[in-house]
Design a binder for these strands. Structure first.
Lengths: 168, 168
DNA sequence: TATCTGAGTCCATTTTTCATACTCAAAGTA
DNA sequence: TACTTTGAGTATGAAAAATGGACTCAGATA
């Protein structure tokens, strides 16, 4: 996936104001959502984050759970470590040599709301039978996400949302 | 990305109860999150959903905004239509022939919380300067997501969440 | 010393992307 | 009528990435 300059990047400030509303209000380079997608928007990477959220720390356990090729797993893990989303954590089992596992950093754990929202969407809208994965608090309450306005009220209808460019 | 049976799928019901807690509590086949990742967890697909959320409906506009190869765009769009996330919408400009655009279905629009959560994470944790893309209500209030317990209270620390398998 | 294990690397093959050019159908124009 | 334009795709060969299997490496144990 090779991301390049997009139409708005190639335009002058003045010209970009005249761009048709048929295009996105903001070019990729200035869009936080696009940056997040570049960082973690890849199938294997997201599945690795699912593993990490489930507390799976070991290379071979992820390999078994996901059926991911070992070389791809190694490459994705080192990318996630380089980005500060996972960190290596040495561990040692009795009578075993010391090894490295991976666990979420605070930055990585901050992705939880996005994963919870994806899970919710899937439960509500995708076929495939009930899911057995639950994300819950220690006392057993299921966790969900809610869209919220700046004033704290919650927003039930996502079609009320509009995407605009911040001025400046 | 070729997803296959994972370790737990190959096990008997009895054996799977004895599986080490080093593995995920639930196999991919029974995991809603994994199904969502399979459906839309791909870089170009997510960027196309960003375009759709921004109200971009046309093939060429998406091609310009994203710099995506035309063949990849065509393939992803038809997959999203087949999944019921986008729908084709004929339109016609004065003096122009009728054409097809794409817009989010209700199912597609229900992905908004996941995209809002990703945007929030990116703003808070990724470098790259301030984002100019705002997602807001018609009256200009910024929209965010919040993790919520089943009892309605909101959850500030994502590390309180545990992943478990639903019994049965 | 030989063996086992988990965490990787290496590599030949297959699949997917990429970039560019080409097609197609309807509307406008000479 | 013939020709041009325009948006929405297809076709294609080269380049990049994924795949699956074998191999490596280091420390612990028999």
């Amino acid at each position: 996936m090779k991301i390049k300059l997009c139409y708005a990047d190639r335009m002058t400030e003045h010209a970009s104001k005249m761009v048709s509303s048929r295009h996105a209000p903001v070019p990729l380079a200035e869009c936080a959502l696009a940056r997040a997608i570049r960082a973690i928007g890849d199938g294997w990477t997201l599945l690795i984050l699912r593993e990490a959220l489930c507390g799976v720390e070991r290379f071979d356990a992820m390999h078994d759970d996901l059926g991911i090729p070992r070389s791809v797993l190694a490459e994705r893990l080192s990318k996630l470590v380089a980005e500060g989303i996972l960190e290596q954590r040495p561990y040692r089992e009795p009578g075993r040599r010391q090894r490295n596992g991976y666990r979420l950093t605070e930055k990585g754990r901050a992705l939880t709301p996005a994963l919870v929202a994806l899970r919710e969407w899937s439960e509500a809208h995708l076929p495939g039978g009930p899911s057995r994965l639950r994300l819950q608090t220690q006392d057993g309450q299921e966790v969900t996400t809610r869209l919220t306005r700046a004033d704290g009220s919650s927003l039930d209808d996502p079609s009320e949302i509009v995407a605009v460019a911040k001025p400046e």
